[in-house]
Design a protein around this nucleic acid. Structure first.
Lengths: 181, 181
DNA sequence: GTCTATACGTGGATAGAC
DNA sequence: GTCTATCCACGTATAGAC
């Protein structure tokens, strides 16, 4: 098993259990590797695995979600493309956001700056598109923040209510939220 | 120290560290009670403490947030009163929501039905007010869900960005979100 | 009710064989 | 690279004195 493949398995565990709820036993079971093998790939142990998982998720997000947003079509089309990708990225609202779950407790101390960067990158990418669409910068910032707020909040609602329809509705309305029409 | 006072201290720990990140050592330190004393109040251990903390938060939320919403003024005034109380309840966006943090990992199995009830109660209370304001029921439901989504999402953004201004802005716009004007 | 002391499992991490 | 075996600290929980 390659390191990449291992990380893809690890990410599931961190997403489901959070940092402190994730144990080496769970990580071992998820990958099929013994604890010692995990330490071969990640000498820094659990903290390094968390770091790797965040880095992996970040790249994945950049490729699948941000890239369509930064392509060269019409702003509205790009935003719609992004919404579709977000839907996939979070498995239609059934998966927790790694950023939100790794921003509490001990994990916050370890990863917050990394997570903050990811979120800021996302916000800035949105602002860029809205400016291209002719929206004034401060309003663009507010709407971009609102969009992310809504995605994050909708994921929580989906998890607690065990029902992803508010999440899907939120995504469907993202273009309106961002472009204001 | 009364049981109530103890619970008020415990809640801080669960909020900050989540269920799995919360240890008896932390709970002991926060209350000033020895571990054995905690077991005197909560024979069921950590799980019972989590339960008690959720129950406490729920009552607190009902009294401070829902009651103003269900008073007998104009809908808009009641919604504004609720927003103010939400602001206090989450310490201006600087405190995590207990419901969102206890809905992951092992805690999800233990507490999800309780948390689900709390959230549904909130949504239903909002729907009631919007219906009184003359809004059609399905739209009332959607807007109520949206309001909660925005509060939850804004709390996440505040935590990650270490900046509560989006949270405050979100709260300020809640009346508009709900009443649609 | 609150404490000290302690039991027992599990968590993270390492050694060393293959 | 992956395993088995093992270490040590800490986690939850309990016993029993005061």
């Amino acid at each position: 098993m390659s390191k990449e493949e291992a990380i893809a398995k690890l990410i599931q565990v961190f997403r489901q259990y959070g940092y402190e709820g994730t144990t080496l036993a769970k990580l071992s079971k998820a990958t099929g590797l013994g604890k010692a093998s995990l330490y071969h790939y990640f000498p820094g142990g659990k903290a390094e695995m968390g770091e790797a998982v965040l880095e992996y998720a970040n790249k994945w997000f950049q490729t699948t979600v941000l890239k369509p947003l930064q392509s060269d079509g019409q702003p509205e089309a790009r935003i719609m493309a992004m919404s579709q990708q977000i839907n996939k990225f979070y498995s239609e609202g059934q998966e927790t956001c790694l950023w939100s779950i790794l921003s509490v407790g001990e994990a916050q101390d370890l990863f917050n700056s990394q997570i903050q960067n990811s979120l800021i990158t996302w916000i800035d990418a949105l602002i860029q598109v809205l400016i291209e669409a002719g929206i004034e910068v401060e309003q663009a910032r507010q709407r971009s923040e609102d969009a992310i707020i809504q995605v994050q909040g909708a994921l929580i609602l989906a998890r607690v209510l065990n029902n992803n329809s508010p999440f899907k509705r939120t995504l469907a309305e993202l273009p309106k939220t961002l472009l204001g029409k």
